[in-house]
Design a protein around this nucleic acid. Structure first.
Length: 497
RNA sequence: GGCCCCAUGGUCUAGUGGUUAGGACUCCGCUCUUUCAAGGCGGUGGCACGGGUUCGAUUCCCGUUGGGGCUACCA
């Protein structure tokens, strides 16, 4: 077989949807795995809803996931243009061929008339499809209506007997009775082709070998195949992918929360984790490996591994996966990703010195072990960057509100203030030393100390965390917590947590 | 309504005409540690149902149920 060519053909009518990203990813993975080409084509035949911003959103979403395309509106290619609104003549040509051969005809029915008749059919329990009123107008009638300047659309004359059988790589053979498909519109009154017409013409003319798209298009495929056959165009190989569902098992939509891919970036997901997660919805390498990086995904992806059943978008698992990526990530790289977020929160200066950057990297390195989202660095690691952190209720309840704690915190502050060299070992010695001196378990010092310094009961290794804070800051925080404790300001607040 | 697709724990899935039905997330327990939202160990939980075919069906066929998709001058 000649070169494999797949495409992603979104309509620029909103953000890049998670479902769209899923489809794009699979088509891209297949092309890359096969050493073929991946084409981006913009299907803006909905003149009303298409927008420029949306086009940019699609680019950004794909780029975020590191899905690159060999041909497309911005990079060009031998089969351009890759924007359907710039290909209108091409569609007109093919539609005219269809009209000439009798496989398509002009329809002068108005939208209102159509609606009305559809309602009647529905009321009478008849499947609502075009009744063929304009299917057999005489040449004279047509010329007359045209002369009157009556607006018209063009309909495809579908087969009325037999069945259209399609071979689908994931679903096998699927058959549709032809008499169920009514004559559908292929060119709107506006002159724009409909999706069904444009998709078929472009896939053929652009040499697409494998049409990989979501299952919602499966039922449209017989219509596409009929146009292809009527035009004398070879059919591509079809592969209809399982849909992504929300927790309630309906097609993932806005009701379920974020469906805009880039919202997940803002929620703290790493692109490589999101790509990995999307890849394992509806596909499996067969082995018991779920964490696959860019190259492994390409190496292992096959259409045979695609499942037929739809999959729920499980945010919990996505977050877990993200955590795995965070743990494995290089601290310096992570710091780079995190920087904009920290600055946005006003937690880190714009003009940081090299020394400060090294410090940040150390903080990230310490924190990344127990984070799941990038935003966790901000919410759980706030105390690294500012004195404006809160003492959570667990910390208040378990330690900070205890009567014997303030004295210990002050004592510890003295010990730590006296540490000559601010190292992990020295810090640990000071803390454990005080415990011995007071004849209490080390935990009786460690826990209150963590609570006072971080406001939390959990977090990274205390000694390491303290080392990353300036000595005087730690001392100050210990005294402050002691004072607040004595003043009765450390009682739990609010309802819970 | 009609047509089409789908069906392994709550979720993502591996798998087979004979398996103790495997893994991952979640949840629970234990454990380590200065803490856990980290690590280690363990556990609860599944082949939707009914008929066939077969010596034997989770696996093959049919039906039922359930879910989803399509049924536009949206894509």
């Amino acid at each position: 077989m000649s070169e494999i060519r797949t495409r992603f053909a979104p309509s620029p009518t909103g953000n890049l949807h998670v479902g769209g990203a899923h489809t794009a990813l699979f088509a891209w993975l297949f092309a890359r795995h096969e050493g073929g080409k991946f084409i981006l084509r913009i299907e803006d035949t909905d003149e009303v809803r298409s927008t420029e911003e949306s086009l940019a959103a699609i680019y950004n979403g794909l780029k975020w996931l590191e899905i690159d395309w060999d041909e497309g509106p911005d990079v060009g290619g031998p089969f351009g243009p890759y924007i359907q609104s710039e290909r209108l003549n091409t569609y007109h040509e093919q539609i005219d061929r269809l009209i000439e051969s009798g496989r398509a005809y002009r329809c002068f029915c108005t939208a209102e008339e159509l609606d009305e008749r559809r309602e009647i059919m529905r009321a009478r329990g008849i499947p609502p499809r075009y009744d063929g009123r304009c299917a057999d107008l005489s040449e004279e009638q047509i010329q007359m209506l045209l002369a009157e300047g009556k607006p018209y659309c063009v309909r495809f004359r579908t087969l009325q007997t037999g069945a259209t059988v399609i071979q689908d790589l994931v679903r096998g053979e699927v058959s549709f009775d032809n008499d169920l498909i009514g004559d559908f519109v292929i060119r709107k009154t506006s002159g724009y082709p409909t999706y069904h017409m444009a998709v078929v013409v472009d896939d053929y003319l652009m040499g697409i070998t494998h049409v990989i798209r979501a299952e919602e298009h499966l039922a449209n495929t017989p219509s596409h195949v009929q146009i292809l056959d009527a035009l004398g165009f070879e059919r591509p190989i079809y592969a209809h992918l399982p849909l992504i569902l929300g927790p309630d098992k309906t097609k993932l939509s806005k009701r379920h929360g974020a469906v805009n891919l880039l919202d997940y970036r803002d929620q703290g997901f790493l692109p490589e984790a999101m790509r990995n997660f999307l890849a394992i919805i509806g596909w499996s390498a067969g082995a018991e490996q779920e964490i696959l990086d860019h190259d492994e995904l390409i190496a292992k992806f096959t259409l045979e591994g695609v499942s037929k059943s739809p999959g729920v978008f499980d945010l919990e698992k996505a977050a877990w996966l993200n955590g795995e990526y965070l743990k494995a990530a290089d601290a310096e790289y992570l710091t780079g990703v995190l920087l904009p977020l920290l600055r946005e929160e006003g937690l880190f200066e714009e003009d940081a010195s090299e020394e400060r950057m090294q410090w940040l990297i150390a903080v990230v390195d310490l924190m990344k072990e127990r984070t799941r989202l990038l935003t966790d660095f901000v919410t759980w690691g706030r105390y690294f960057f500012t004195e404006e952190f809160v003492y959570d209720n667990k910390a208040r309840q378990k330690w900070l509100s205890r009567e014997d704690v303030p004295d210990r915190l002050d004592a510890l502050a003295e010990e730590l203030a006296a540490v000559p060299e601010w190292t992990v070992d020295a810090i640990e010695q000071a803390i454990r030393g005080l415990a011995e001196e007071l004849e209490v378990g080390a935990g009786q010092i460690i826990h209150p100390c963590r609570a006072a310094v971080t406001g939390q009961t959990i977090g990274p290794s205390l000694f390491h965390l303290i080392e990353l804070l300036p000595q005087e800051t730690v001392v100050k925080r210990l005294h402050r917590a002691a004072e607040l404790g004595r003043a009765g300001e450390m009682q739990p607040v609010g309802s819970s947590d």
